[in-house]
C-alpha cells in the first residue's frame, strides 16, 4: 500500500501547509487592514476630542475618549436629520417604484408572445447605450414641472436598462411548464406574474433592488441640478457641502462659539451618510451572490 499522505485531502487537494497558511493569513490580514483602517479612522476621528485631533494634525486612528460634539453640531440645525429623511424617503419610494416598473417591463419583454417585445427592448437598450446628456434631461424635468420637486430625484432615473435586462434574463429562464400549469389552473397574466414569477425571483429582485437603492442613496448630482430648496437636499449633497467645502462650518467675518474641528465634522457626516445603506447589506447578503450570477450567465 502506498504510504498515507502526510496532509489530509480537502476537496481532493492536499491541505495547505503552515507556510502557505501563514502567507494567506498575512495577505488576507493586509487586505482586511486596507479596508478596516480607513473605516476605523473615519469613525475614530468623528468621535475624538478636539485636542487629540489638533495634536494628530487631522486624523485619528483610535480616539482617546469619546466626544460627540461633531454629531451634536451636525444635528443641531436639523439639516442633516432632514436630509437623512429625504434620502431614506427617496431611496425607499424610488427603489419600490423602480422595481415595480422594471419588473413589469422585464416580464412583458420576456414573454415570447408579446409582439412589441423587440421594439420595446430596443428602446430600453438605446436608453442604456446612449445618454441624452445633462441639458436635455434638465429641460424635460423643467417642462414637466418637476423642478424643485423630490420626484425629480426619482422619475428621470426610475428605470435602468441594465437592471431590466438582468430581470428579463432571469424571467426567461423560468421553466415555461410552471407558467403554463398556472395558466391551466386558471391564473391570468397578472396571477402568473404575481404568484409564480415574482416568488421565484427573490434573488434577482434583491440584487436589482440593491442596485437601485444604492443608486438613489448615492445620487447627489440630480439634486444639485433640480432642487433649489436646500431643505429638500438629500444626504449626499449635504455630505458634499460639508466634506468638499473645506471651510463649511466656519463663519468668516463673524466671531462665534467654538466649533468642533473640521476633520471631526467631516468624518461624522461620512459616518451618518454611510450607516443607513450599510444596514441593508446583511439582509440581502444571502440573495446577493446567487442573484448576480443568475443575471450574469443568462445575459
Amino acid at each position: 500500500m502506498p504510504r498515507a499522505r502526510s496532509r489530509a485531502l480537502v476537496h481532493g487537494q492536499a491541505a495547505p501547509g503552515p507556510i502557505e497558511n501563514a502567507i494567506k493569513i498575512l495577505v488576507l490580514g493586509v487586505l482586511c487592514l486596507v479596508v478596516i483602517v480607513p473605516f476605523l479612522t473615519v469613525v475614530s476621528t468623528s468621535l475624538a476630542p478636539r485636542e487629540q485631533i489638533s495634536a494628530a494634525g487631522g486624523l485619528v486612528l483610535l480616539p482617546r475618549g469619546i466626544d460627540l460634539s461633531a454629531y451634536r453640531a451636525l444635528f443641531s440645525g436639523g439639516v442633516v436629520s432632514r436630509a437623512l429623511g429625504v434620502s431614506i424617503g427617496v431611496t425607499v419610494v424610488g427603489t419600490a417604484l423602480s422595481l415595480f416598473v422594471s419588473c413589469l417591463l422585464a416580464y412583458a419583454t420576456s414573454r415570447p408572445y408579446f409582439v412589441l417585445a423587440r421594439p420595446v427592448l430596443l428602446v430600453v437598450l438605446i436608453g442604456m447605450l446612449f445618454s441624452p446628456g445633462i441639458i436635455p434631461v434638465y429641460l424635460v424635468v423643467k417642462q414637466t414641472g418637476l423642478l424643485d420637486s423630490l420626484w425629480a430625484l426619482i422619475i428621470p432615473t426610475m428605470v435602468s436598462g441594465f437592471n431590466v435586462i438582468v430581470l428579463r434574463s432571469f424571467f426567461q429562464g423560468i421553466p415555461a411548464e410552471l407558467t403554463e400549469s398556472a395558466t391551466i389552473d386558471g391564473a391570468g397574466e397578472w396571477g402568473v406574474f404575481a404568484r409564480i414569477v415574482l416568488p421565484l425571483s427573490k434573488a434577482p429582485l434583491a440584487v436589482v433592488g440593491l442596485f437601485y437603492a444604492v443608486g438613489y442613496w448615492n445620487s447627489f448630482f440630480t439634486a444639485l441640478l433640480y432642487i433649489s430648496d436646500a431643505a429638500k437636499w438629500p444626504m449626499q449633497l449635504v455630505l458634499r457641502t460639508y466634506v468638499v467645502n473645506d471651510a463649511a462650518m466656519g463663519q468668516a467675518e463673524l466671531a462665534t462659539e467654538n466649533l468642533p474641528p473640521q476633520s471631526s465634522l467631516q468624518m461624522a457626516i461620512l459616518v451618518v451618510s454611510m450607516v443607513p445603506i450599510l444596514l441593508i447589506y446583511p439582509f440581502l447578503q444571502r440573495h446577493f451572490a446567487k442573484g448576480v450570477l443568475t443575471g450574469a450567465v443568462k445575459g
Binding site: 440645525g77 439639516v79 430648496d229 436646500a230 431643505a231 457641502t241 467645502n245 471651510a247 463649511a248 468668516a252
Partner: peptide, 12 residues
C-alpha cells in the same frame, strides 16, 4: 453658491 453650512430655508 453658499460658502458655509446649509442654512435654514426661507419658511423656517
Amino acid at each position: 453658491n453658499i460658502p458655509g453650512a446649509i442654512p435654514p430655508q426661507r419658511g423656517e
